[in-house]
Design a protein around this nucleic acid. Structure first.
Length: 701
DNA sequence: GAGCACTGC
C-alpha cells in the first residue's frame, strides 16, 4: 500500500472556490431574456453538464396521469407558456439548460403543441446514437404514441419514422447526410442542435449548413427555418454571435451541490496520486485516467493492494472502463457491488459523456486526457496525453452529483487549474477535413474555402484537405471555382472517408468489388480483433491460421470469409478472439455499402481468391499513403519522407516488405503505420505516374 | 523494435 494511504483526504487536499456563480459568468451587457429558477441548483454548476439519459432507461409509467404529472413537475414546465411565446417569434435562439431541466424532451413537445411543426418536421440532433434512440422512445411515451409515428428517430441502419412523424430525433451526422441531398432541409420547420457545447465535427458543420439554409429559404420566400441551439454550458457567446446575436434563454436544472478539492502541491506523477487517492477515499469512486493500458495496469495494482488490506477495511471491486472493452464487461459498472465491497471504476473520458453511471458520489480527476491534436505544420494528427480543459474538468466533476451531493478530488492545484484552457479545441480544428470538404462540395456550397464556420480551421488545414481530394480525382477547377467531378459526387454518396470511397469506386477495374467491400467495411469500424494482453500467446496461436504474408487487409478478409463460410456465431468469435459486436457491425456496413454500389449500377464481382488484384486495387487508391523500406532497415513515407514504423499490431510487424500501403498513420511515441498491405512499387507508379515521378525509391532503382 | 482517447455517416 502506498505510504500516504490512510491519511484523511483533507490533509492533502484543500477545498476549491468552485466555478463562478451562474449570474457572474454572464458577461455584463448580455441580453438574458429569461431567467427561470426552480429546483435547488448547486455549486458544481458552470461545467459542461449534459442530460443524456442513462443506458438503462426506466420504462415510462403505464399511468398517463403519472406521466403528465412527471412532465408538469419538471422545472421547465413553469416557463412553458413564456418559452413558447418567445420561441414562436424567434428565428434563432440559444438555450442553456442544466442537467435535469428537461429541455431536450420538453422543448420539442412545446413546439409541437404550439403548432410549429404544422408545415414541417421538428428535428432534434444528438451526437450519439443511443441518445437519439432513447430520447425518441421517452418522448413518444410521454405523448402516448407508438414510437415511429408522431415521434421517431433516424440513425444509421435504423430509421424509425413515418409520414406522421413531426418530432424526429437524429444523430448530427445523419442530418448532415440528409443535407447532401437537400441543402435547404426543406422537410424541416425547426432544427434543434442539442449538446452543442460538445462541438462535434458534425454539429459544427451543421451550424454553417442550417445558417445558410435559413438565409436561402428567406431569400426564396419559402417556409422559414427556426434554429435552436441547446447547450449545457455557459459559454454561449460564440453561439449567440454566430446566429446574429440570437437571444439566450436560461433554464435552471437540478444539479446537486458538489464540493471540489484541489491538491496542495502539484503532482508530478498523476498515476501515483490517483492510486493514493483511491485508497484514501473509502467509498465508491469514479477515477479518470487516459487510456486502456494505463487503466488495466492501475486496476491490477489496486486489486493487488486490496488483497492485503487490514481487517475491517471494506473489500474492493475494481472495474476498468473504456470503449474497446467488450460490452458485457462494460455493463458491470452499472451493477451494484456485492455486500461489503466498494466499487472503484477506473475509466477513460468515456464516462464523461457517453456512459452515465448513477450513484457516483466521489470523482477523482487526474486532469489528464488522451486526445487527438492536429499539427498544421506536418499535417499529422497526433494522439497525445494532455491536460483537460476547464470545461472538461467541470464535466468530470459533474459526474459526482447525479443523484445526490458529491465530492470531486482534483489531482492538481487550483493555480494549475486556472491555467487550463477554457474550452476544449473543437474537433473541426483537430481532424483531417477531407470528408467535411467533400460533403460541403456535394451540397454545392458556393465557396468551400470561405465557408462560414463558427470556429474556422486554419487555411492550411483546409488546403490540405482540398489537396487530398484533388489527388483522389474528386475535384474540378473551373474559373476559380471548385466543383466535384462525377467520381467526386459518387464518393460523397458513401458514408466513408473519401479514400475508402475511392477504393470501392476503383474496384470494378480490378474485378474485386466483393473483396474490397469487405475490406473497407472492416476498416471503417472498430477492430474486430480482440487482444486481451493476459492471453497473448493463445491469441497468436489462434490467429496464425488467418495470417497472410500479404498484410493486414488480406488477413482481415480471411477472418471475415471464414466467419461467413462456416456460419460464424458468438462462440466462434469467442474461440477466435474476435469481437462479435464489431463483426456484426461489419456485416451491416457492408450491406449498406453494397446497396449504394447497386444504386449506382456498379458491377459487383469477386476476384475469387486472386488476392493480387485486391492488393493492386488498394495500391491504386491508397497510393498517397505508402512507405518504403530504407537501406538502414527503417521505413519512410513516399511523399514526405516522414520516418514511420510498422505498428506492433500489424501482421507484418516482424517482416520487412520493400513497399507497403497503409490506411492510417498514428503518432503516439513514434509515427506508426496501421493496417498495412504489401504492394509492388510498379503498381504505384502505374496508379499515379505524375505523383510518383520523382518520389519512388524502389521504382527508380 | 513494442502499442491503439471518443464519437459518427
Amino acid at each position: 500500500m502506498p505510504e500516504e494511504a490512510g491519511f484523511p483526504p483533507a490533509k492533502r487536499f484543500r477545498p476549491g472556490s468552485g466555478p463562478p456563480s451562474r449570474a457572474g459568468s454572464f458577461p455584463p451587457g448580455r441580453r438574458v431574456v429569461m431567467l427561470l429558477t426552480a429546483g435547488s441548483g448547486g455549486r458544481g454548476g458552470g461545467g459542461g453538464r449534459r442530460q443524456q439519459p442513462p443506458l438503462a432507461q426506466p420504462s415510462a409509467s403505464p399511468y398517463p396521469e403519472a406521466v403528465e404529472l412527471q412532465r408538469r413537475s419538471l422545472p421547465i414546465f413553469q416557463a412553458r407558456g413564456q418559452l413558447l411565446a418567445q420561441l414562436r417569434n424567434l428565428d434563432n435562439a440559444v438555450l442553456i439548460g442544466e442537467t435535469g431541466s428537461g429541455k431536450t424532451t420538453q422543448i420539442p413537445q412545446y413546439l409541437y403543441e404550439g403548432g410549429i411543426s404544422r408545415q414541417g418536421i421538428i428535428a432534434v440532433t444528438q451526437p450519439r446514437r443511443v441518445a437519439a434512440i432513447s430520447l425518441a422512445t421517452r418522448v413518444s411515451d410521454e405523448k402516448r404514441t407508438e414510437l415511429g409515428k408522431l415521434v421517431g428517430y433516424t440513425v444509421r441502419f435504423d430509421d424509425v419514422t413515418s409520414e406522421d412523424t413531426r418530432i424526429k430525433f437524429l444523430t448530427d451526422g445523419m442530418l448532415l447526410r440528409e443535407a447532401i441531398s437537400d441543402s435547404l432541409l426543406r422537410k424541416y420547420s425547426c432544427v434543434i442542435l442539442d449538446e452543442a457545447h460538445e462541438r462535434t465535427i458534425h454539429t459544427d458543420v451543421l451550424f454553417g449548413v442550417v445558417k445558410a439554409a435559413q438565409k436561402r429559404r428567406k431569400e426564396l420566400g419559402k417556409l422559414p427555418l427556426k434554429v435552436i441551439v441547446m447547450s449545457a454550458t455557459m459559454d454561449v457567446d460564440l453561439f449567440s454571435q454566430y446566429f446574429n446575436g440570437a437571444p439566450v434563454l436560461y433554464l435552471e436544472g437540478r444539479q446537486h451541490p458538489i464540493q471540489v478539492f484541489y491538491t496542495k502541491q502539484p503532482q508530478n506523477d498523476y498515476l501515483h496520486a490517483a492510486l493514493v487517492s483511491v485508497f484514501q477515499i473509502h467509498q465508491d469512486i469514479l477515477v479518470f485516467l487516459t487510456g486502456q493500458e494505463e487503466i488495466e495496469a492501475m486496476s491490477k495494482t489496486c486489486r493487488d493492494i486490496a488483497k492485503h488490506l487490514p481487517d475491517g477495511c471494506p473489500a474492493m471491486l475494481v472495474l476498468p472502463l473504456y470503449a474497446s472493452l467488450p460490452y458485457a464487461q462494460q455493463l458491470r459498472v452499472f451493477q451494484g457491488a456485492p455486500k461489503g465491497y466498494r466499487k472503484v471504476i477506473i475509466s477513460t473520458n468515456i464516462a464523461e459523456t457517453s456512459i452515465t453511471i448513477t450513484g457516483i458520489k466521489y470523482v477523482v480527476d487526474t486532469g489528464m486526457v488522451k486526445a487527438k491534436k492536429y499539427n498544421p505544420d506536418s499535417g499529422l494528427e497526433v494522439l497525445a496525453v494532455q491536460r483537460v480543459s476547464k470545461t472538461q474538468a467541470w464535466q468530470r466533476t459533474g459526474r459526482a452529483g447525479r443523484e445526490d451531493s458529491g465530492i470531486c478530488y482534483r489531482l492538481y492545484t487550483e493555480e494549475e487549474f486556472e491555467k487550463f484552457d477554457k474550452m476544449t479545441v473543437p474537433e473541426i480544428q483537430r481532424c483531417n477535413l477531407a470528408s467535411v470538404m467533400l460533403q460541403l462540395l456535394a451540397m454545392k456550397v458556393p465557396n468551400v474555402l470561405t465557408f462560414d464556420f463558427m470556429s474556422k480551421p486554419s487555411p492550411d488545414h483546409i488546403q490540405a484537405a482540398i489537396a487530398q481530394l484533388d489527388l483522389l480525382g474528386a475535384l474540378e477547377h473551373k474559373d476559380d471555382q471548385l466543383t466535384l467531378t462525377p467520381i467526386g459526387r459518387k464518393m460523397a454518396a458513401f458514408p466513408l472517408e473519401p479514400k475508402f470511397a475511392k477504393t470501392i469506386l476503383m474496384s470494378p477495374k480490378f474485378h474485386c468489388t466483393e473483396e474490397i467491400l469487405t475490406i473497407v467495411s472492416l476498416l471503417s469500424v472498430d477492430s474486430i480483433l480482440h487482444n486481451p494482453p493476459s492471453r497473448r500467446d493463445e491469441v497468436q496461436g489462434v490467429r496464425k491460421k488467418f495470417t497472410s504474408s500479404e498484410g493486414d487487409h488480406i488477413t482481415l478478409l480471411n477472418i471475415y470469409r471464414t466467419f461467413k463460410s462456416i456460419g460464424g456465431n458468438k462462440d466462434w468469435c469467442k474461440e477466435n478472439f474476435v469481437n462479435s459486436k464489431n463483426m456484426i457491425l461489419v456485416a451491416e456496413v457492408r450491406a449498406q455499402l453494397r446497396d449504394i454500389c447497386l444504386k449506382m449500377s456498379m458491377p459487383i464481382m469477386s476476384s475469387r481468391g486472386d488476392m493480387e488484384s485486391v492488393r493492386r486495387c488498394l495500391a491504386h487508391s491508397l497510393f498517397m499513403s505508402t512507405a518504403e523500406l530504407q537501406p538502414d532497415g527503417t521505413y519512410a513515407t513516399t511523399d514526405t519522407h516522414q520516418p514511420v514504423a510498422i505498428h506492433p499490431s500489424s501482421v507484418l510487424f516482424h517482416c520487412k516488405p520493400a513497399c507497403v500501403v497503409y490506411t492510417e498513420l498514428l503518432y503516439t511515441n513514434k509515427c506508426y503505420m496501421r493496417d498495412l498491405c504489401v504492394v509492388d512499387a510498379e503498381w504505384l507508379y502505374e496508379a499515379a505516374p505524375e505523383y510518383f515521378r520523382r518520389k519512388l525509391r524502389t521504382a527508380r532503382n
